[in-house]
Simulated assay, not measured.
Amino acid sequence: MKSLKKLIILPVILLGLIASAQETANRFFYELTYKPKKDSARLDKVMTTLDIAKDKSIYQDFTLPAQDSIIKSAVEEMEKTKTFKDMSKMIKWPKFSYKIYKAYPAMTEMYVDRISRNLFAYEETLKFDWKILTDKEKIGTYNTQKATTEFGGRKWTAWFSTDIPFQDGPYKFYGLPGLIVKIEDDQKNYSWLLSGNKTVKDWKEFTYAEEVNAKYGMSNEKKIIAKDKFEKSYAAFKQDPMAEARTQIPQNMLSMKMPGSDLTIGEMLKNQEKMLNDFFKSTDNPIEVVQVTDKKKK
């Protein structure tokens, strides 16, 4: 499932951040090559990351986190000048906006995404039926070994390295005796390749942009609900992504201009609605073509 979490930037961002606990994490960069449209041969690429901290890992599209310094600079300028800056024209938006949390050591998984202004999640207990083969291959600087599994209606081939002592991998994949270096389905709809890693000191779960947005109305508190309820709510959000916003903004405010801008509030909402609709229409080829139920099966 592809989804959206950070495409609505608050029109006015004031001072202050929510402080959060900091720690050190290992960040692994995976280049994801994927086919957004199932009836097209076109491939897209996006950088994703797997952050492995003390008690959990977090997988996500790295497009927005990589621009945190740009966002911070823009926010500080808005605060200083008291004017609105249309960040949609200066920021590259993510291809995927969900996060996958894995809790160590149980490896309970949590799929997290934003539905309108709130952060929702559902939990899963997945068990991958890996078949570890004798094939070995050098991928970049990594010594790897081959393994296969089936998941989400697709057949997957993975290459893992016991030189990296984490039994984890991109997206929901985990459970091999070493970090997954490469994994792809047999039709090459989705292919992840480990392209680098670094140690992140003072690591935080949320980015600067997420912390600022949370300060002013977009909660970062995860509301865990049943998977079927999550999917139903998300489907409704895709059908009308600005439904909640329309109920919260009085009609007489729509013609008001944003501070220091010729753009009205109504025009800003229409721009955001188009951006969200374009996002949702950008793919019809999900990673999981068959949804997996939480019954400890593959």
Rank of each mutant, 00 (worst) to 15 (best):
D51L: 06
Y171G: 05
V181K: 00
K270I: 02
L269W: 03
Y216Q: 14
S116D: 05
Y98F: 15
E205D: 02
K56I: 10
P286E: 03
I8W: 08
I9C: 03
T247P: 02
K131C: 09
N252R: 13
D278M: 08
E76C: 07
A209R: 05
V289H: 05
V200K: 10
V292R: 06
P259E: 07
T49Q: 10
R27A: 09
N189M: 08
T63Q: 06
T283N: 12
G178E: 03
Y34D: 04
G175R: 02
Q248I: 03
W192D: 04
S20D: 15
E31A: 12
K298P: 12
K95G: 11
K198H: 08
L43D: 03
F128V: 01
K54M: 05
W130F: 01
M1Q: 10
R114L: 04
I9E: 11
I100L: 04
Q187M: 12
L17F: 05
E211G: 12
L176V: 04
G16N: 06
D240S: 09
K215C: 12
T207W: 01
E109K: 09
Y59E: 05
I139D: 00
D86E: 10
Q272M: 13
T48H: 10
K37C: 04
D113S: 15
D278E: 12
Q167S: 14
D262L: 08
K297N: 15
K281R: 13
W93I: 12
E31L: 14
I132Y: 01
D135I: 06
A214H: 14
N189K: 06
K56G: 03
F279A: 12
K80C: 09
M107C: 05
K223I: 14
M268K: 06
F279K: 11
D135C: 02
T24F: 05
I249T: 08
W130A: 12
D185T: 10
I18L: 14
Q167W: 00
M253I: 05
R27W: 07
A74C: 11
K131H: 11
D228R: 04
V46T: 02
W93N: 13
R114S: 03
P286Y: 02
K56Y: 15
V12H: 08
K229A: 14
A236H: 11
P286D: 01
G260V: 08
I249A: 01
T24Q: 13
K95L: 00
T49P: 07
M253V: 06
P65V: 08
I265Y: 11
A147P: 08
M253Y: 04
Y216S: 06
F237D: 08
K296H: 15
D68E: 15
I180R: 09
Y34T: 03
G140D: 03
P11G: 15
F151V: 02
G175M: 01
V292F: 02
T48I: 09
F84M: 00
F128Q: 04
L179S: 09
T293F: 00
E267L: 06
I183Y: 09
K45Y: 08
Y104G: 07
N271R: 08
Y190A: 02
A245H: 12
G266R: 01
Y171C: 08
F120S: 04
K238C: 13
P170N: 01
K223A: 14
K222A: 13
P36V: 01
K54S: 11
F84N: 02
K80M: 02
G152P: 05
L14Y: 14
T283Y: 09
K270W: 10
D129V: 04
K238P: 05
E79G: 06
M110K: 01
N277M: 14
T48N: 03
A158F: 11
K215Q: 13
L133V: 02
L119I: 06
